Simulated assay, not measured.
Amino acid sequence: MMLKCPEKFTLHSVPRLRPDFSEVEWEAVGRIWVKGLLDLGVLPVRLSSAFIVACIHRIDSVSDYVLISSFQNYLSSTERSAVAKARQGTLEECDEEDLLDLFTRMGSHCIPPKNTMEVAIQTMAHKAILQEPKYIIDCFSKTMIFALLKVPDQDSLLSLYDTKKATGKKVAQLLQTTQEIRSQKEQMVFSHLQRYVRNADQGKAEKFLRFCTGSSVICVDQIKVSFNAESGLCRRPVAHTCGATLDLPYTYSSYPDLRTEFDNILSSDYFEMDIL
């Protein structure tokens, strides 16, 4: 089931109300979420951490630090920069328009004075992250009592949230070869693969993880890499998501050769999925 995000390119999003979703549908999404958490330890890490805390531990348990951090990740890079400067008291004239646009979108029509700026930003964050999706939070909360078995407090929840989030470095550490003794070519290609994944940004790391495991959230202990001798038009990496296994040709002549092939695969239109 899809959760529509208000802005596709934000790092952390919150679900928004939909005319075709009633209480029954939102509660069903909540049950699916809890089932994934209890059985596989999966969290929807593209959702705001403050929103997730509110669903499991109630809105009043969300700390100011988690709220502001989530709000900054919810914003575009331009808005994030303007808010950061406003909080630091270093707002420049060229940033005021971006900040005013943000406040206007959130329901205000002027930039508050410096002595009330922090409070105004916290109020705006609370509105965007917690108040607007309050109905969804209430629907999710009805089944979240079972999630307390896995994450009994806010610290354990945030720790799990961070652990499950894909980064290039964390995904690269999952890569393991199926054979202990590798040929020189296999070792070279495996090193190229580790380099490619380690240098990936979060978006590409999530796509690579999804290609190999079927999920953009870390839910396996390792990704097994085996090798074959395919070349020419037959050469391509093949992933088996049920077993988190990657069948990789050792016939790549260089790192750019491997990088180009994986970039083409991960950027393919058919690979686009918007399920959080």
Rank of each mutant, 00 (worst) to 15 (best):
M1R: 09
L3G: 02
C5M: 13
P6E: 06
L11T: 15
P19T: 08
D20L: 12
V29G: 12
V29T: 09
W33T: 04
G36Q: 06
V42I: 15
V45T: 07
L47P: 00
S48H: 02
F51M: 04
V53W: 01
V53P: 01
C55A: 13
R58D: 12
I59M: 10
S63F: 08
D64A: 12
Y65F: 14
I68R: 08
I68P: 07
S69Y: 14
Q72M: 08
N73F: 13
N73W: 06
Y74T: 09
S77M: 07
E79N: 05
S81C: 06
V83E: 00
A84D: 02
A84P: 01
K85G: 02
K85S: 10
E92Q: 12
C94F: 15
D95Q: 11
E97N: 06
L99F: 08
D101F: 11
F103L: 05
F103D: 02
M106D: 05
C110Y: 12
K114N: 13
T116D: 07
A120I: 15
T123E: 09
M124Q: 14
M124C: 12
H126M: 15
K127I: 03
L130P: 01
Q131G: 09
P133L: 05
Y135C: 10
I137H: 00
I137N: 00
S141R: 04
T143W: 06
T143K: 03
A147Y: 00
L148S: 10
L149V: 13
K150P: 09
P152W: 04
L157A: 06
L160Q: 06
Y161Q: 06
T163Y: 12
K165V: 02
A166W: 02
K170F: 03
V171S: 00
L174K: 03
L174Y: 05
Q176W: 10
T177C: 12
Q179K: 15
Q179V: 09
K185V: 08
M188P: 03
V189N: 01
V189H: 00
H192P: 08
Q194F: 11
Q194P: 03
R195W: 10
A200Q: 00
G203V: 10
K204M: 10
F208G: 01
F208I: 09
F208Y: 04
C212D: 05
C212Q: 05
S215R: 11
S215Y: 09
I218S: 00
C219R: 01
Q222K: 13
V225C: 04
F227H: 00
E230N: 11
L233R: 13
R236H: 10
R236Q: 12
P237W: 09
H240E: 11
H240R: 14
A244Y: 01
A244W: 02
L246C: 04
L246K: 03
D247P: 05
L248F: 08
P249E: 06
T251M: 04
T251C: 09
Y255F: 10
Y255S: 08
R259I: 04
R259K: 15
T260R: 11
T260I: 12
F262P: 00
D263G: 06
N264A: 10
D269W: 06
Y270W: 14
Y270G: 08
F271N: 07
M273S: 11
D274F: 12
